[in-house]
Every structure is written in C-alpha cells, then in structure tokens.
C-alpha cells in the first residue's frame, strides 16, 4: 500500500501554546516497501506515524494511504480503514494486547471488526505462525510470555487483518538483541509474504540499518534519507535542503552560501571562502 504525504503539517495545541510537530513533510512510501523513521526525541516521527494511522488529523497538507485521503475521511471510515488496511503496533508491547486474553484470543479479538465486514482473514493461528510465535505460547496467558513473545503477539495483532500498511512505533525497544532480531525478522516476513508496507519508528541505528530505507526527521521536517546504508539530504518541494548535522556545525544557521555547479556536481561555498577565493 502506497503512502504519500504532501506538505504535511501538524500542530499540537496545549495550554495556549502551539507547537509544530511536523512542518511540511513530503514523503512517498512505495507499496511493499520497508521504511524506518529515525530522529531524536520530539522530532515528530511518532506524530508522523500517528498521522499515517489516521489517529490524528493533519493541521495542513495531505496524507494519502492507498487511495484514501485521510484528512477527508470520517471517523467511522478511519475506524474501518484501521480495521482492514492499516495495522498499528503501539510502543510497548503490552499496550497492544488485552491482558486477560491469550495471543490467539487477542488476534481473534483484533479480527472481529474486519470479520464483521465479510473480509477473508487468515486464522489466528496462521497469523501467529507467520510472525514466528512459538506454538506453545499461542494459547498461553500473556503473563507467561517473554518480552520478545509479547512483542511478536503485538505484531500479530497488528497484522491480524492482513493490512496493506503496518505501522510500528519502537517495536524493538526494551528487547534484547535476540528478541529484537526475531521481531525484525517477523516484520520482514510479513512484508515478504503478504507484501505489506512496513513503516516503523526507531531510535536504534542498528535497527535502522536492517531496513532498506530510512527517513530521518529533524525538527518536523525530513532531514535525510538513507538507502542501503548511505544517507542523503532530501530536496524538499520548496527547494530547501536540510544539512546533515556535521555540515550544520560548520555552517551555522544564517550562513550565506553560494551554490555552484562544478564538473557536474553541486557545490556549496560559504561567503567568506568565496570572498577569499
């Protein structure tokens, strides 16, 4: 499922102050793509994920998930979309699960809305198997599950309705390396088997490194994009290019630059260097 944002802005209003969490995000996630959103705390990556899930309405701009313009959808339509096309893994495995149900029951519970709409869904056991949940844990009380298994259950619940888009907020936080790898493997497996687009938020560079594409959010904007381990600055629709941190240290805000094309490359020359030259 394709995800497209255009000039996406989101402003939180709290106690009389407006805080711009996102300031014009332009992004396209291709169907079946796996994408990690990176960035420091408060950069806006979780807000972006929430907007993808239709849990928040954008203050400005557009969010398209598949053919759906989320900003124009009603609350009921969004509910339906989340029950059929968008799966979400909230930060903290337990928040995704009803504590009094087993993993199988949780998956069944999560499928109820989609089943009510006559949607063909895989069996709960099949979903759990897809994410790699050990068989002996399928019907175990959640209190007996390891943290990794809990997270797998959370992923299973999120993909229970075979969504086109899977959104995961910090799915590997508080997990040891082995468990982290298992969860990442599960996400990759879901992506590979069902072609589900996967967007996850992480702080962990190692996790990001396991994703084919990364987007770094800084100050509510797309700060960089990584592909196959290499990071690129992204030219935004208005022509601006956010500098990477090491460049920004050398070129503080307010610096004057000349942009030259040299030998087929684009060169940024500070004014002093230019004058000295």
């Amino acid at each position: 499922m394709r995800v497209v944002t255009r000039g996406l802005v989101h402003i939180y209003r709290a106690e009389g102050h407006d805080v711009a969490a996102l300031s014009g995000i332009d992004l396209v996630v291709a169907p079946g793509e796996r994408l990690a959103l990176l960035g420091p705390s408060g950069a806006g990556k979780s807000t972006l994920l929430t907007l993808f899930g239709g849990l928040l309405r954008p203050s400005a701009g557009r969010v398209h998930v598949g053919e759906h313009d989320l900003a124009r959808m009603t609350e009921a339509d969004l509910d339906l979309l989340r029950g059929t096309e968008i799966g979400m893994v909230l930060q903290g495995a337990a928040r995704n699960l009803l504590p009094y149900l087993t993993p199988r029951e949780n998956v069944t519970f999560a499928q109820a809305a989609a089943k009510g709409r006559d949607r063909e869904l895989p069996a709960a056991a099949e979903v759990l198997a897809l994410v790699g949940m050990p068989l002996e844990s399928v019907d175990a009380p959640l209190s007996r599950l390891t943290p990794g298994e809990l997270q797998l259950a959370a992923v299973a619940v999120a993909v229970s309705c075979r969504p086109g888009l899977l959104l995961a907020d910090e799915p590997t936080s508080q997990l040891d390396h082995d468990a982290r790898d298992v969860v990442l493997g599960a996400l990759a497996h879901v992506n590979a088997v069902w072609g589900t687009t996967v967007v996850l938020v992480t702080h962990d560079a190692e996790v990001a490194a396991r994703m084919p594409r990364t987007i770094t959010i800084r100050d509510g904007r797309v700060g960089a994009e990584g592909r196959a381990g290499e990071e690129f600055a992204v030219v935004s629709a208005d022509g601006s290019v956010p500098l990477p941190p090491h460049a920004l240290a050398a070129l503080p805000p307010g610096s004057l630059l000349r942009v030259h094309a040299e030998d087929g490359r684009w060169v940024l020359l500070p004014e002093e260097e230019d004058a000295g030259a």
């Binding site: 899930g53 849990l55 609350e75 009921a76 509910d79 339906l80 979309l81 989340r82 029950g83 059929t84 979400m88 909230l90 928040r95 995704n96 699960l97 009803l98 519970f109 999560a110 499928q111 109820a112 809305a113 989609a114 619940v157 229970s160 309705c161």
Partner: peptide
C-alpha cells in the same frame, strides 16, 4: 482507556 483505544485501533467503531 487502553482497551477502548485498542478496540478502536483494531477497527471497531466508537459505539462498538
């Protein structure tokens, strides 16, 4: 609250 949120998150309507 979290359980209601989960229900909504899994596609249930507000009434459901």
């Amino acid at each position: 609250r979290p359980e209601v949120a989960l229900a909504r998150l899994r596609g249930r309507s507000r009434e459901a």
